[in-house]
Design a protein around this nucleic acid. Structure first.
Lengths: 220, 220
DNA sequence: ACCTGAACACCGTTCAAGT
DNA sequence: ACCTGAACACCGTTCAAGT
């Protein structure tokens, strides 16, 4: 561990190196704490060196997101269309849990990039093969994507809150301060609500509701 | 329009005034552009005056969110439980569309506050009355909430992107650059995918899938 | 093309002080 | 209790310049 960070020599930078280092930093210090200045310091260059490879911070975010989307597993063959949908949705969720920054990256920027298109292609292909027409396939794709995004982002957010003891204490306090007279059901179901803020079971519960609804609508 | 902003006299500040002004600013200049310094300037006080009423920026965010949640309409009586669920979900979505900052506020902070509890109480009461047990009611509540949050946040995000001509042009360009050989379904369904990024129909499509799934599971 | 260094116009928050 | 003013430790990005 040298105290003075050595200046990185010229022409050792690359888009890939920047993206990988950015991802490492987001994972290590949290997505919100990530900054271009911190990334540049980690790489041993001035902040402006990054602008040779990316037009701005959002452009870098898009690149990091597409880098992560490459890790979504391909659609499994030889299984029911519902299990294919399940595999894609669970795969995306698992990746978001593994890389919490992906939740933020997917929610704050429109979809673009080669790997992102690959995931969409897989899911849309499954739906078309299952018999859904163009419009139903598109609507279903958006529904599934926004469900996975909403459910998993929420789960990650709540898990992060639970790790901060101060925030967690305040949340419990306000929860307990609710009057049972005014909010009887919320107070009664407090333990169940706390248990169902995340986890595989909760995710599959909502996913299965959607799949059951889809099954009813699927053209034979 | 005076050029020099007059200093606000003492004891004219209040939590309510701060929250309302904060909301106005978020609506006028965008949630991301909101800052405590800008808010203080608008109120004609120093930035530190706000800390008498809120411990930090997140605490103010929570207050703004609860202020908005008061506008979610109560559960309608005398209709089918499914229409009650629909009313709550659509009401929350409509409020998010009307106040886009609400989407960001709900997604980035855990639920707390009196009005937020009121909305949860309404939805949970409907589900319990419809026959769902404690666990199913809690799971369904989380599923519905995360669906509404995910679908509507996405819709708002896409609409914002569409308003920025530069971002919209880049999105169209990358979409059109996708090879039809590698991504046949995405390219084929491009018009449908563009049409189904938002709107009442798209929202109801997903909501109806969930409700159809729930109907199958509901204990008689 | 690749990268630096200084500068601009911002942030949230702490701390000590004033009324 | 309510609010000020200066300061700290940051941001993303522009611009002109160097290699």
């Amino acid at each position: 561990m040298s105290v003075t960070k050595s200046r990185t020599p010229r022409n050792t930078l690359s888009s890939e190196l920047i993206v990988r280092t950015a991802l490492d930093l987001m994972e290590a210090k949290g997505t919100d704490a990530f900054s271009l200045r911190g990334l540049a310091a980690e790489l041993g260059v001035g902040p402006m060196a990054l602008y040779t490879y990316f037009r701005n911070k959002d452009d870098l975010y898009d690149a990091v997101r597409d880098h992560l989307m490459a890790l979504v597993p391909p659609v499994p063959a030889d299984v029911d269309w519902k299990d294919q949908v399940r595999a894609v949705c669970r795969g995306l969720r698992a990746l978001m849990l593994q890389h919490p920054c992906l939740a933020q990256l997917l929610g704050s920027r429109p979809l673009s990039g080669h790997e992102t298109a690959r995931v969409a292609e897989g899911l849309l292909g499954v739906l078309r093969s299952a018999g859904f027409d163009a419009e139903a396939a598109a609507r279903t794709h958006t529904t599934l994507f926004t469900y996975v995004l909403g459910a998993t982002s929420w789960e990650i957010q709540m898990a992060a809150e639970r790790r901060d003891p101060e925030a967690w204490r305040r949340l419990r306090t306000t929860m307990e301060s609710l009057s049972a007279k005014e909010f009887p059901t919320v107070v009664d179901l407090a333990p169940e609500l706390a248990r169902t803020t995340g986890g595989d079971e909760q995710f599959d519960y909502g996913l299965d509701l959607l799949l059951a609804g889809l099954e009813l609508r699927r053209p034979s």
